[in-house]
């Protein structure tokens, strides 16, 4: 059977790597990459993998244009990776990109007769970070407190629309992957930018437990569920846990413990503040059983690999 895969968020690092991995697979006929901005030229980003035979289409996901791309190319698999946490634009623009973009994409998938597999990148941030929550979240854990904060709230709303879609189109295999914080040489996220600071401000009296997932493992999981049926919701995270203080010492960065209002003054959002106070650890056993595979990097190895290029 033919495989025409649509990848959203292809101009960002992970989207680009997933598209490139799929393009390298001879079983995949076409890879169509969409994003709101064109992918940066390889000369600017030397370590970025080539997109290969990925066909790039510039589409604003907030518009219904993506439906035309799906029907024109007989897309059967949609890999939705464009959930962003970045503060690049204003908060409302990010929210619109995340939430409305997903709704438009799923609306197009719902009407399509060719789409039979949808993979959505979500985040473990949907569980929040709280002193009143279990130490380890599994896929069935209900969040202790309703999330009111930006990126977390976006992810919760995105997942809600995915659940609605899965209910209306039970014939389509729908996979939701909740990724722990991505870590690796090419990752650019609020967390990797945090660790690039010369001094790490921390919340006085708290040492959060952190868990990462290496970008290589993330790409491998995404490329695999894009080609196989694995319906359901899965946590994606590396084995093992590091404390923030351990990360700082491994990075050779001094920490500056300050009371939490001071961190807010330094520009941290409330969800970042909660994460730096209480941390977050998830159980990724369900995915390991489903795929019969564990991540190659544990949390410490993923962090060391990130440090290796930043030093």
């Amino acid at each position: 059977m033919t495989h025409n895969v649509l990848v959203t968020g292809v101009s960002r690092h992970i989207g680009r790597r997933v598209a490139s991995a799929l393009a390298a697979d001879p079983d995949v006929d076409r890879v169509i990459g969409v994003d709101t901005v064109p992918p940066s030229s390889p000369s600017r980003e030397d370590d970025a993998p080539p997109l290969g035979r990925t066909e790039f289409v510039r589409v604003d996901l907030r518009s219904p244009d993506v439906a035309r791309v799906i029907s024109a190319a007989d897309v059967d698999t949609v890999v939705h990776l464009s959930l962003v946490s970045g503060p690049a634009k204003s908060r409302s623009a990010v929210k619109e990109h995340n939430v409305i973009g997903t709704m438009q994409l799923l609306a197009a998938c719902q009407r399509s007769e060719t789409v039979r597999r949808v993979v959505v990148r979500s985040t473990t941030a949907v569980y929040g970070s709280s002193p009143n929550a279990p130490a380890v979240f599994s896929e069935d854990t209900e969040p202790a407190e309703a999330s009111h904060h930006g990126y977390e709230k976006d992810a919760v709303e995105v997942e809600a629309s995915v659940r609605g879609f899965a209910r209306r189109r039970p014939d389509v295999v729908t996979t939701t992957l909740r990724f722990a914080a991505l870590m690796g040489p090419g990752v650019d996220s609020p967390l990797t930018r945090y660790f690039a600071r010369p001094v790490l401000p921390t919340v006085f009296g708290f040492d959060p437990r952190l868990q990462f997932v290496h970008e290589d493992d993330a790409v491998e999981v995404l490329a695999r569920v894009a080609r196989e049926d694995h319906p359901g919701v899965f946590n994606v995270a590396a084995d093992g846990v590091l404390l923030l203080s351990q990360c700082a010492r491994r990075a050779g960065r001094p920490v500056l413990p300050v009371p939490s209002p001071a961190l807010r003054f330094l520009g941290f959002s409330s969800e970042q503040l909660a994460f730096l106070t209480h941390g977050r650890v998830v159980d990724a056993a369900r995915l390991a059983v489903e795929l019969g595979h564990r991540p190659k990097y544990d949390t410490a190895a993923a962090f060391d690999d990130f440090l290796a290029v930043r030093r």
């Binding site: 002193p131 929550a133 279990p134 130490a135 209480h278």
Partner: peptide, 26 residues
């Protein structure tokens, strides 16, 4: 315990956790 600074952190270092069914079962 887990809402207070220092105390919650030391409790976790000592192997303790929040009294909730998820953690107890695990």
């Amino acid at each position: 315990v887990y809402q207070l600074p220092v105390l919650g952190h030391l409790a976790r270092k000592g192997g303790h956790t929040l009294a909730c069914p998820e953690d107890a079962d695990r």
